[in-house]
Design a protein around this nucleic acid. Structure first.
Lengths: 143, 143
DNA sequence: AGTCTTATGTTGCATATACAACTCTTGTCA
DNA sequence: TGACAAGAGTTGTATATGCAACATAAGACT
């Protein structure tokens, strides 16, 4: 793996930059559906687990519950889902259709990304990701 | 490096999650100075290159110029810098002091991060980062 | 059932971003 | 030097987030 010498860039800065760049790329891909990547991601997750609650999504994605609340409200205003504390989130017809289309787009974009980046780069991200999230789990065993 | 099998997580989603998590950790560290990580980063960069212009920062950080404009305005309101198209950005006394303190904090946090994550994880991020940014440069040779 | 605790969701307020449209410099070239 | 092209910065509008404070709903235990 040829460890580069004492890494001198800022980890947070770099991650934020990468996140901006990649978000931009994915947003472009989803623009045709009139959704952002963040929204597409939620649509696909709710599609995969109808009835999931905001809190569960927030935990999985490590997004603040208030942020999730607002994302959901926006998607509800757009007519993509119904929300209900008791039963959880369900996609409407429109939301469901959009989710399916998003998944197609995602598959293409994802495959593209894998091809362009190559397995090593992707494995590199996995390594970093696993380590960071593992560390985080350790610090917070039963939150 | 033991390449994990066909990575099945979403690259954009993962990067965004990591970015949220790490931003949170760094924000905590800088909270004592009353700045966010994003602001601390700008302070440190302007400290290192007095007179740099918004546009240059925006290019380096790959942030939209309008976003940069607003970040700068906020920091100006906070009394940390002066802005001027002709001469660029300069820290005030207060800004300069804060920048120095932020740098101390950053060094500590960064070292901590390196220790906790370990060289492999960090190298993994570098690998990913280099590949992504390189690809991006190729697509856009002389923007 | 009634109460107490905990989890869930919302709202107010603030930052960090993006895109588009606009203004204002700056520089260049005839 | 005057007109025009390019670059820099702003503003309007919108999304994505976070923290704190609050409201509310769910569950558990008596």
């Amino acid at each position: 793996m040829n460890p580069t010498q004492p890494e001198n860039y800022c980890i947070a800065g770099r991650l934020r930059l990468l996140s901006r760049v990649v978000t931009g790329l994915y947003n472009e891909a989803f623009a045709a559906e009139g959704v952002t990547f963040a929204q597409a991601g939620l649509l696909m997750r709710i599609f995969a687990r109808p009835g999931i609650r905001q809190a569960a999504l927030a935990r999985t994605l490590q997004i603040e519950k208030s942020a999730m609340s607002r994302d959901v409200q926006l998607m509800q205003r757009n007519g993509w889902l119904t929300d209900n504390v008791k039963n959880g989130l369900f996609l409407t017809e429109v939301g469901s259709t959009t989710a399916k289309r998003c998944h197609k787009i995602w598959k293409t974009v994802h495959q593209n990304a894998l091809d362009q980046l190559g397995p090593e780069a992707v494995a590199g991200l996995s390594l970093f990701s696993d380590k960071l999230l593992q560390f985080q789990t350790e610090s917070n065993p039963n939150p």
